[in-house]
Structures are given as C-alpha cells and as structure tokens.
Design a protein around this nucleic acid. Structure first.
Ligand code: FES
Ligand code: FES
Lengths: 144, 144
DNA sequence: TTTATTTCGGATAATTTTATCCTATTTATA
DNA sequence: TATAAATAGGATAAAATTATCCGAAATAAA
C-alpha cells in the first residue's frame, strides 16, 4: 500500500509531533530507535518532510526535528503520503493505465475508485494530532 | 497498491477469460500485445497463475492458456491478487508492523482496517466474469 | 516418428527501492 | 573565535522488483 519510506515517514512525523508537544527536538537516531527503522534512511525521509514544510529542522547544537505545535492539528496524513509517495495512490489507475479516466476506464475502475476515494478521504481527514494522541494514550504502538 | 506483476496478471486473466468463452486458447505473445505488457515477464506471471490453478495451460501445437468456461464466474479477483502479491494486502499492517494485531495496533490501525476490509470485500466479490463482460461490452479497456 | 509449435524454467540483466557511509555545512555555546 | 553537535547531501551498496533471453520439455499434426 504505502512504501517503506512512507511508513517510516508517517511514524517519524507522529513521534516528532509527540515530542514537539513537550517542546523537545528529536534526532534521526532517536526517531529511528523509537519507530524501529534504519537510521540513515530515515534521515533521508526526514529531509523530504522538511522540504515539504511538514516538519522543521534546526541544525547545530541543540538542534533536531520539530513541528510547530499549532500546526500539528492541521497536518493531515495525506500531506505526508503525498510528499513521499506522490499522489498516484489517489489518482492512479488500479491496473496501471497511464491515467485513471472515467471516460476510458480499466476493467476495475468503478470498484477500485470507491476504495481509492475512501482511502483518500481517510488520509485527508486524519490529523497528525489524533495519531500522536493515540500513541501517548498507550492505545497504539510504533513497533511490535 | 498492486505490483506491476499483479496488474498484468489481472489483465491477462481477463483476456484469457474472454477468449475462453470463444473456445480460443491464447499465447503469452497475444496476451502481452493485448494488455500492453512485456511478453516474457507476462509469461512468468502466467506460470504463477497456472501453478495456482487459476488458468490452465496446454503445451505444444495449438496450445496456449485457457480457463474452463464454467470456472470463469467463480474466479474472484482476490484469488489472482493472492497468487501474485500474497495476502499482505488483506492482513498486513498499514505502517509495516510485523503483524496487524487488534490488541497491539499501530496508530492508523482503526482507520486503515476499514479501507483494507473494503478492498478485501471488493476483491472477494468481483469475478473474472464480470470484468470480462465489461471489456467485451466496450465499457472498459486494457490500455490507454 | 519427425517436425513445428508452444509452455516451462533457469540464468541473467536492468531498474527501482531500500539502506549505508562519509563529508560538508550550519549553529549554539563556551 | 573555536569547538562540539547536529542536519544536509552526495556517493555507494544491497535487495527487491521488473524485464529479457534461451534452451528444455511437451504435444499435436503431418
Ligand atoms: S481507469 Fe483504472 S482505476 Fe480508473
Ligand atoms: S496494526 Fe497497523 S493496520 Fe493493524
């Protein structure tokens, strides 16, 4: 469904959000440990999130990654997925046609579109904030 | 969503179904041309479908791939997807946890599970027959 | 039985994704 | 200003996916 990079990116963003609520910046090392991901690869993904203005990075001593507290509620899963995996998952054809087109649909278009639209809606209506809360409440987990 | 291999596999199966209704066997070459896929790679995927008893192969002159007419209605998309991509798409965790587990869920579990279950339901209730019909009726297409 | 046809299957290559390593750059503080 | 701490980013490497090639095996028909 999502690429590994995207899975890491989502988890990393949640972890950064949690720490930003506590006014703490976090390092790629701390993130990778917490979410159980390869550190250097995770760092690359963080760069991508920074480029997309989803997280903020502060270089130098006492630096790290953070998200503006007031933004955490506004950031939606869809932004992260789009930043890392692009929007093929929202617009792409289920059978790989170059373009998903109502007027020239693939055999599964009608059925696939429903699923895809549900997914899109879900991602667009799920905020980083609520995911962070569920982790903090101990209701969900980053690793097995 | 699906791998390229799976996309080709689904399209190939539909094309074989159509031809089987007309009592014609088809070759990897004909399939690849029709569904716009690399021939040799498509042949590999066909082997996988044969191993999973989804399509039947007949070697030698006048051979080719076919599906028993009476089976076409019974074959569901889910069988093809499972044969090629496995069942990670039905059971796998959206954030890559080793195992999707209600009692130890990842942050997106609740929301992801709904989507995933919808997809599973759709795949399990979509038959090769109906997809073949929509192609034959000119209502859907294999290529752009 | 020979021949032409066709799938099967192993080996290999190309591409993409995932992952690692090392150095440059930035920045707060001493 | 010097130093230590941190992210940025380029160069590779490893692994997985996608794709190609070719000979072996099977089969129908001449
Ligand atoms: S054309 Fe294939 S999903 Fe829309
Ligand atoms: S645990 Fe992640 S989707 Fe169920």
């Amino acid at each position: 469904m999502f690429s590994k990079a995207c899975e890491y990116g989502i988890k990393a963003a949640i972890f950064i959000a949690i720490n930003s609520y506590e006014n703490r910046r976090v390092s790629p090392k701390a993130i990778a440990q917490e979410i159980n991901s390869p550190q250097a690869f995770t760092a690359k993904i963080l760069q991508e999130l920074v480029r997309n203005n989803i997280v903020n990075s502060v270089k130098g001593a006492y630096g790290g990654f953070e998200i503006e507290q007031t933004n955490i509620k506004n950031i939606k899963l869809s932004q992260i997925v789009k930043a890392i995996d692009g929007d093929k998952i929202y617009n792409g054809c289920g059978l790989g046609l170059e373009k998903c087109d109502e007027t020239h649909p693939c055999p599964v278009h009608d059925k696939f579109k429903d699923i895809r639209d549900n997914l899109k809606y879900m991602l667009e209506h799920t905020s980083l904030d609520e995911l962070a809360m569920s982790i903090q409440a101990g209701e969900s987990f980053f690793k097995t």
